[in-house]
Design a protein around this nucleic acid. Sequence first.
DNA 1: TCCTATTCAGGAATTATTCTTGTTTAATTA
DNA 2: TAATTAAACAAGAATAATTCCTGAATAGGA
Lengths: 147, 147
Amino acid sequence: MDYNELINVLSNKGLKRTPQRVAVLEALYEIKNHPSAEEVRQKLYSRYPSIAIGTIYNILDTFCEQGIIKKVKTDSDFVRYDVDMERHHHIYCENCNHIEDYHDPELDELLKNYFEKKCIPNFQIQDFNLQIIARYVKHQNKPNQNK
Amino acid sequence: MDYNELINVLSNKGLKRTPQRVAVLEALYEIKNHPSAEEVRQKLYSRYPSIAIGTIYNILDTFCEQGIIKKVKTDSDFVRYDVDMERHHHIYCENCNHIEDYHDPELDELLKNYFEKKCIPNFQIQDFNLQIIARYVKHQNKPNQNK
DNA sequence: TCCTATTCAGGAATTATTCTTGTTTAATTA
DNA sequence: TAATTAAACAAGAATAATTCCTGAATAGGA
């Protein structure tokens, strides 16, 4: 994603184009794996060593409010963020703290249809999102079923 | 859940029957709504004003390790716990921070079958759980569709 | 270019959680 | 029942993520 695209994201949401915001946004698009605020700061460090961690939190909050990014729910004691705003689900790796995106329109359709039939009393469903807890398994070069 | 049942839960897991553990466990069963450590402390306060918050954290950790309770993933900056160990899902209320349990064996079956057919490369699925983001809607006495 | 609301930097404050240390206690065994 | 000991607890200090505060800088509009 180049500079023009980045500043378009900001201006589309009516946000001032500050160097800090552009840098944070760029870092978010570069880091694929659901970074924390601290990981964003580290990614930024070479380009932008002076940015304050409080500023990063402010910017991430602003981005969340404007629907540019989302918080990812985890068990851990810090917040992680996701730039992928398409509907998708997450695979939580049991062994490590990796969170992998899982896009599956067929599943989305299945769930949508299911909940259209089956209403939940007192609740209007806005969205859903499946957490898949899984174990990462390294495959051989030839795709077969063993560990 | 009476005292004997509570101490059975502990002894089944090989945990010492301390007054603190019994009290925390009782509080967890009384509080239905996915409490934080602090909420457990408040619930306990009348019966057990001297219990240390660190002790509550220790006990909750131990209970998690032993599979008596589970952590609940949220966006917020503190951990919540769940005593319901049956497979179930969570409805996250958009308006407030309420989390409602959602049991639905039919859905579980649907998901199980879906992922049996559709494998995810490099991952062995251990478990899944659906987060339903919803808006709470107060119904009239007669159940109809309006807000 | 000037003006002003917004944003930022730096650091202090807050809050949830963990750690440490000395004391107490539950459960086991004599 | 009493003695023993590993486990658990209380109290408070320490840590770490996040928020708040204040004065300075700046983006974008006039």
